[in-house]
Simulated scan of single mutants.
Amino acid sequence: MFGMGSPKKPSSCANAVVTGAGSGIGRAFALEIANRGGAVLCSDINLAAAEETAGQITASGGQARACQCDVSDLGQVEALAKAADEHLPGDVDLVINNAGVGIGGLPIGETAIEDWHWTLGINLWGVIHGCHVFAPRLRKLGRGGLVNVASTASFSAAPLMGPYNVTKAGALALTETLAAELAGSGVAVTALCPTLVKTNINANGRIVGDSSKLFDRLMNRFGMSAERVVNDALNALDRGDLYVMPQFDARLIWRAKRLIPRTYALGTGLINRFGASRLN
Rank of each mutant, 00 (worst) to 15 (best):
T119W: 05
G121F: 06
L124E: 05
G126E: 11
G126W: 07
G126C: 06
V127I: 12
V127C: 05
G130H: 11
C131V: 15
H132K: 15
F134R: 06
F134A: 08
F134V: 07
P136T: 10
L138Y: 09
R139D: 08
R139V: 05
K140W: 02
K140H: 13
K140V: 05
R143T: 14
G144D: 09
L146G: 09
N148T: 07
N148G: 11
T152Q: 14
T152H: 04
A153G: 15
S156T: 06
A157N: 11
P163H: 03
P163Q: 01
Y164A: 00
N165L: 07
T167N: 00
A169N: 05
A169V: 00
E176T: 08
T177S: 15
T177P: 03
L178V: 09
L178A: 07
A180Q: 14
E181L: 12
L182M: 13
A183S: 13
A183C: 06
A183H: 14
A183V: 08
S185W: 09
G186L: 08
V187I: 08
A188M: 07
T190R: 07
A191Q: 10
A191M: 10
L192Y: 03
C193E: 13
L196G: 09
V197M: 03
K198I: 06
K198E: 10
T199I: 04
N200C: 02
I201T: 02
N202I: 14
N202E: 12
N202Y: 07
G205Q: 01
I207L: 11
I207G: 01
I207V: 15
V208W: 01
V208Q: 12
G209H: 08
S211F: 02
S211V: 06
L214W: 09
L214I: 14
F215K: 02
R217H: 10
M219C: 04
N220G: 15
N220I: 03
R221N: 07
R221D: 11
F222N: 12
F222Q: 12
A226V: 01
E227K: 06
E227P: 00
R228C: 02
V229L: 04
N231G: 05
D232H: 14
D232W: 00
A233L: 01
L234E: 04
N235F: 03
R239N: 01
R239S: 06
G240M: 03
D241H: 11
L242F: 05
Y243V: 00
V244I: 10
